[in-house]
Write a protein that binds this DNA or RNA. Sequence first.
RNA 1: CGGGGUGUGGCGCAGCCCGGUAGCGCACCUGCUUUGGGAGCAGGGGGCCGGAGGUUCAAAUCCUCUCACCCCGACCA
Length: 624
Amino acid sequence: MRPRPDDGGLPRGRLVWRRLCGGPHGDLRVAHRGRQAGRPSPLPAGRQRGQQEEGREVTVRRSKSLVPTLREDPADAEALSHRLMLRAGLVRQLAAGIYVYLPLGQRVLDKVNTIVREEMNAIGGQEITMPVVQPAELWQQSGRWEGINEMFKLKDRWGRDLCLGMTHEEVVAWLAAHEIRSYRDLPQIWYQIQTKERDEARPRSGVLRTREFLMKDSYTLDPDVAALDRSYAAHERAYRRIFDRCGLRYYVVQSDTGMMGGLGSHEFMAPSAAGEDEVALCAGCGYAANVELARGVPAAPESPVWTRQEVATPNVRTIAEVSQLLGIDPRLTLKSLLYVAKTSGPVLVLVRGDHALHERKLARALGEEFRAAHPDEVRGALGAPVGSVGPVGARVPIVADEALRTGTYVVGANREGFHLKGVAPGRDFACRFADLHAVAPGEACTVCGKPLAVERVIEIGNIFKLGTKYSVPLKATYLDEAGREQPIVMGSYGIGPARIAAAAIEQLADQDGVVWPWSIAPFQVYVVVVSVKDAAQLGAAEQIYGECWGQGLEAILDDRDERPGVKFKDADLLGIPVRITVGNSFVKEGLVEVRSRRTRQERRVGQGEVVAAVRAMEAEEGRT
RNA sequence: CGGGGUGUGGCGCAGCCCGGUAGCGCACCUGCUUUGGGAGCAGGGGGCCGGAGGUUCAAAUCCUCUCACCCCGACCA
């Protein structure tokens, strides 16, 4: 349904407004320029830049538009971007994690998607659309039908199992199995911008984690891993361009490929307090990784010279209590945590007292699913309650964090009310070592030794080397030069347009509201008529507004019969890059004000210089 | 799934402890005044108090169950 005119004569890089529907006012949707990026298009005479189509009037007036701004913060919104997206009238929530995109929100998504399309096309991506509703058989073949409780499953009227697509590897592999035969058909890049459905356990933070969301997902098909590496690198470059153009600050970090393995993956992370992930960053060498796998070397405490001995620790359970009672640094204690692995059974996990176990790391170390042991299981396995357990004499396998290779520590004695002092891992008990603790700020970078920073981030994109995980079970193969059948080597790559919008708000908003980057702003210009009852003001504002559209600037006219303060507050809240005010100074001196939302700097210019002033402001603020 | 919280006109909230039949601000409608940073006055419309059951002469208020939403954690292919 989204308008996608062909390139017919539209100037490059410019969004063109079209009125597509009847009705008293314009359609707020953004018309996309064609899908082919970088194709210079000739301009036929009579279809000059920015011209309105077929002479139909362009009207985007606040008085007629669905832009329901809110004066107060909605009670249910906590994250900054969530509050502002509601207050600025971009979205409304229909149910937990399910949102309606209102006209302004839709325009932002369209802007982001246009950038995404241009950059995907630029690396040879071909846009397709795959179904949301998918047959169970595909997922049964890939082995993913069981075990993903995030998937919406349903039955048709005949009782056949179907699901709502949460991702499209299976469909891509199916398509490749049917259509790709020869090495001559490779490589391929297929992408779509399509709705995904995931039955999230906990939707949260507005549009940052929802059950239904738009995703740009692309898939690469290559003959071998070397070719996959090239496709992967092309995606990384495209993603950098996309996020740069969207005006975001972001990091590219190493990420966990998950329990299912894979040949490698990176995530694109936009720093924000509202983020759900954390990354470790090294300013020295550029090392950057999701904390799910980031490694750091913690400073070792000075181990006192103490002989191994049992000490009474009555009614003391936590690390804080133990270290306080004994008067020692918490770093000289060990946390002993009992887990139960699905097949191999109980395992005792050790991290330093001041460290947090990262369960994702434990999952990798164990190579299977696990859960925390119940208190009675702890007593059964170790003969002591949770607060007094330790590794010495434990008759279960032990995994200890790498940081514990050296030093001596205080551990639980496996005897209620007692701890052991001076215990050395490896000497006093047998264990294997693995990286288990969540990296903390200040730990040394394993590459260069400089201190690591840890930052909260929003995942805005990811790139993943799948390998042959889907092509083998779904029989997506090709014949190589020697006529041998080979599995296609796949990659998959995602971008969340709504997360880009939310991250932009998180990173750029100020006290007064949203501050959009020029590139993804729903409009570039907000025209305020101070008094709509003054025909001269209104007439001039309409002229300026028409001039903007004529010159390729998207403008919205605030022609509501409201007091000026209301309109100024709203303009700030909406975050459109430039505000033009037609008011007293126009009446008196023929001047209008051109004001930057971001810098709040204002210029007064004659009516004829408005577009030039906006362009100058755009250039200064660095449209990317 | 574990823990915490909230459901009362469109939005934000009070009322609930101590039962007596619903109120404030904003928004909305009408009129007058006002008009450069969320106006003033006057009048007006709008609420099965999330739902079901129970206690009671009487329930927004007490009890039980249930649903929805938010936050923390787990999960997140």
